[in-house]
Amino acid sequence: MVDLTVELAGLRLKNPVLLASGTCGYGRELSEYFDLASLGGIMVKGTTLRPRSGNITPRIAETPAGLLNSVGLQNPGVKKVIETEIPWLAKQGLGIIVNIAGESPADYAAMAETLDPVAGIDALEVNISCPNVEAGGLAFGTDAKVAADIISWVRAKTKLPVIAKLSPNVTDITEIARAVEAAGADIISLINTLQGMVIDVETGKPVLSRMMGGLSGPAVKPVAVRMVWQVYKAVKTPIIGMGGITTAADALEFIMAGAKAVAIGSATLTNPCAALNVAEGLAEWLVAKGVANINELVGIAHRG
């Protein structure tokens, strides 16, 4: 029997496979397809202080080996999430990570304070990288000082492990990683989506209602692996890697680059059982290779 358990700054997971925020809702739809307890955890849909109806459609555009989305954080608001989603999720037997997004540092602080005492929550993922909202979002995650400020506001309001979710839309990802580490982030997750655009040549207009969207899927995987590699070298903080993971082999690339855990995003949209397949595939791979513990693989690509 191989050991798939991982521990990131107090966040213990039975295996390193998570569902990435924004591609799994609050877990209910996927629970119709497989037992959520087979996964390490879920990073729930980006949650805001007040309910948000999101952007107008079209919100999705397909691209070569990927897709653009500009959903715009449609969610029922933190109060409703605590009342209706968390109690149900807490019974499913997997780690619960609540992704929070704000329009101001005070929003983040208020949500952290509200979520801190809620039973069942294992960590907060601070979304400072959503490219699809008017206020905050990406603007917070591309400025090292602002990113650090938000993390320290959240840090001050909760005892839960704080995960900083970084944007890849920056010149130097390690600068942001160092800043959020210094501000008290326990874990770093990356990458959020890359900004992109698709134009319909028949109409001569961008396909998405909001013109630009966030690119995800297999197309972004090499960028994400490269950034995990860089961040692993730059900081001590444990990493959750994500960006185009579809198979166990993809997940292993992230782990070997330095991620202790991985999250499955767009692949879920192409198969509700994608994350389950990755978790099972990892176990099979370890058995086949005679590796007793997944932690032995973390960062091995850095060894000379």
């Binding site: 924004g22 739809e29 397809y33 919100r59 989305n69 959903v71 449609q74 879920t268 949209l269 509700p272």
Partner: peptide, 26 residues
Amino acid sequence: ERMGCGFGVCMGCVCHQKDENGKEKL
């Protein structure tokens, strides 16, 4: 509608509906 996943997680295909009180909902 243009869809991403087809089973309710991506929120790509929303339309506007009236709820039981006649208020607009997605």
